[in-house]
Design a binder for these strands. Structure first.
Lengths: 198, 198
DNA sequence: GTCTATAATTCGATAGAC
DNA sequence: GTCTATCGAATTATAGAC
């Protein structure tokens, strides 16, 4: 990090600032300052703010999928085992990238067509072994998509809402992290309990 | 709505645009266009973009609390009854204001001090009869704040993530609405199931 | 490659006619 | 009160020296 190339410094700074503040609220000056470099270098290496943003967007989209995609189609794992691994991996990733959820939600809403590019969320989730296992566990009591939404909700939402939750719950960063650690164990149990609801 | 005053037209347009795009991505010209009026009138009636935004922010914060605060301290209702009313009211509100969650999450993150103004989320939730009932139902198995987070998560997150969920689940607006209707009934059942987890 | 200085554009705000 | 025209500040992008 200390002596990475100039191009790399800019990319890292752009990652930090864009992910924290989103496209619209970010000024290229913020990125230059974060990188400890001159404003002109951003355009020299990346041509435009949009172009630099698109690179960061792709990185963030991939990070958002990583940690799930590998697990979903492992046919040797039970549903419960998959839930455990997914919750663990995802919360680990979110602890390192706490700004990611709000970034993804905001930028996809502003620019939905960027979701379709490259990666097929549809294929990855809806045609996975995991989804089939969910469907089987539910019988035809319920649309399995509800459970997908619930897993994503209870895993991701606390990070997206952390500024509010910290104030409401009077939590320091330490307290918040401790709660998220507890959730790694609890989320699979909660989801299993939901699956049994009639 | 058709022949409301100019000031009211601006306020309505500002509500729509600010809530959909957030402060940073909104241009005052967008609001003027949405209102079908001239740009100069915004400053004539509201002095500045910031000032107009603060008004919309307050409206949206209050709307975000309405539908909960009344129920939380009704001592005649059981926990289950409260959960039912909260899920029902909140999803009704979110169906009418689908942009509200992302707006609140984004603007509080950008400006956390605006949460403290006026309303005390802390008091309203943590010292409510509802919270006491949660604590009792859980014994000391679990920090009740987890359940608060879970209620908020499974209720609010699907609206914040709706652009993504629609693409991933191949849902039209009709399909999405139908799922949210189902959730009104399911959320209390899911939360009750979570409370029993050891 | 890197920097300073500046051009070009966008955007919030205002002056002034009606 | 409402509009057109425009100013001035902020911001992206670039020219040109080193």
């Amino acid at each position: 990090m200390a002596d990475s190339s100039t191009e790399e410094k800019i990319r890292e700074a752009a990652h930090v600032v864009f992910t924290r503040k989103g496209f619209a609220a970010t000024r290229t000056r913020d990125i230059a300052e974060e990188a400890g470099l001159n404003l002109a270098l951003l355009n020299y290496y990346f041509r435009s703010k949009e172009n630099l943003f698109d690179i960061i967007m792709k990185e963030n989209m991939q990070r958002f999928l990583k940690g799930i995609s590998g697990v979903l189609n492992d046919e040797s794992m039970t549903l419960k085992a998959k839930l455990t691994v997914i919750a663990e991996n995802y919360i680990n990733m979110l602890e390192k990238n706490p700004d990611l959820p709000l970034f993804i939600l905001t930028e996809i809403k502003a620019n939905p067509e960027k979701l379709a590019v490259d990666m097929n969320f549809k294929e990855i989730i809806l045609r996975s072994n995991f989804y089939a296992q969910l469907r089987e566990a539910l019988g035809n009591k319920l649309n399995p998509f509800h459970i997908i939404m619930n897993i994503l909700s209870i895993t991701i939402f606390p990070f997206a809402a952390s500024p509010i939750l910290k104030i409401v719950g009077e939590l320091q960063q330490n307290d918040f992290n401790a709660l998220m650690e507890e959730r790694k164990k609890m989320i699979p149990l909660w989801i299993e309990a939901m699956l049994k609801v009639e």
